[in-house]
Amino acid sequence: MEVAGLILIVIGTFFDLFGTIGLLRLPDVYNRLQASTKCVTMGTCLILFGFAVYSGFSPAGIKALICMFFILITSPTAAHALAKGSYRAGVQLANQSVCDLYSDKQVLKISAVMNRDVITILPDASLRQAIDLLVEKGITGLPVVDSEGVLLGIITEKDIIEYKTYGNVETAKVRDAMNINVQTLPPSAPLKELVSIFSQEDFRRVPIVEDGRVVGIVSRKDIIKFLKEEKK
């Protein structure tokens, strides 16, 4: 029994340690709370249970079991109260947070902003056609899709200019110059995700893809237009 008790105590101390590592390393108060409270409650309960196993039916063992019962009830309650208190006090979520279900503000989806009339081009079209289309429509990039509407890549002003440095624009096809490294998002993703792509990476437009098919596109300009309409 003593060995079993000691093993439980050792496992418990490691739960405590990992819980506090979570407390130290996670980005915001809510993450810290959820990581550390669960782990440390579990760890200390294991220590108490191990002690009860170790000392058997002695007064100290019974006290350990009572204490374990108290902690199991009080610790989650305290954590819940703390989380609610912090939220009410206006402690911000970490930047990486994806959604905030308690918030009154409705989470904006990309589908509210995206441009549904996507002008696309086939990979076998000539580069000249792509250039004409870009100039004619006054846009800066075209998603390249096959006849089924599946996204293959994107061709932008930048890609064409780059291609001009090593290839012949007159004879080339879109396939030769397009960029296959495309960042896409589903229409159900929150707008916040899109904004972080625009602010951190060098993409000027993001095709919105659902089940492999292009259903829309959002450029930086679309976001600015949306901000203007939101103001009204």
Partner: peptide, 26 residues
Amino acid sequence: PTPSDRAVAIDILGILVVGFCVIISL
């Protein structure tokens, strides 16, 4: 950095101390 972080850490510290009391008792 926020008071809430400190409150959480104090709560956790309390539970750790309970475990520590058990080890002292042992």
